[in-house]
Amino acid sequence: MQTPDSLSALFKQKAELVSAVVKEVKTPHEALQYAIDVCERKENCLSLMPALNEPPDANPAKIIAAPALDATLTDAMRALCEKNNIRFLTSGLREHLAGIDIGLTFADYGIAETGTLVLDSSSEEVRLTTMISEIHIAILPQSKIRPDAYHLEDELGKNMRSYPNYTAFITGASRTADIERVLALGVHGPLELHILIIPEPEKERT
């Protein structure tokens, strides 16, 4: 019998096999702080279209995009970004196609068998956030982890019937083995994928 904990452990193991970073956080606010910390530690995003950008800034601000957080979390994130001198975006991602530092999203579901995140990305802002960020950080409630994709057929079917729809399965960072079959991460999508699992609250467990 699969318990939430065993599913979560399997999810973690499978996601790590494809180089995802998997952590547990107690609350969404802890996840926000995690995003800030990762952003602080990383080098500035490399502009993929230098010519299209403004003249190089000597000390450009890093960018975190989180277009789909609820109002409370958005406010909290904005405050954290301000405090750390990070630019915070909730929309207008098309203005930043040269690349951003961090994209922060929730995941709708996790698939344990393959360490996969499922994200309804019908919002173009969400879609771009997961595509053009150098590091994609996704928050995944433990209760949303399913054993395999078959267990999500109803949910996915619902997405597909509420057209238009763009649903993404995301497993690890963008990758290629097109040159000499050598694995390299970060081709056209994120260089890194971090998954923050939020355990179920105690009361739901009993």
């Binding site: 499978k14 494809v18 919002s123 173009e124 238009p164 399965f169 995301i170 497993t171 960072a173």
Partner: peptide
């Protein structure tokens, strides 16, 4: 691979800026 990095399901013409 157990699954590819991305599996994308597109239903109809989506929002496009």
């Amino acid at each position: 691979q157990g699954i590819t990095s991305y599996v994308t399901w597109i239903t109809g013409p989506n929002v496009c800026g």
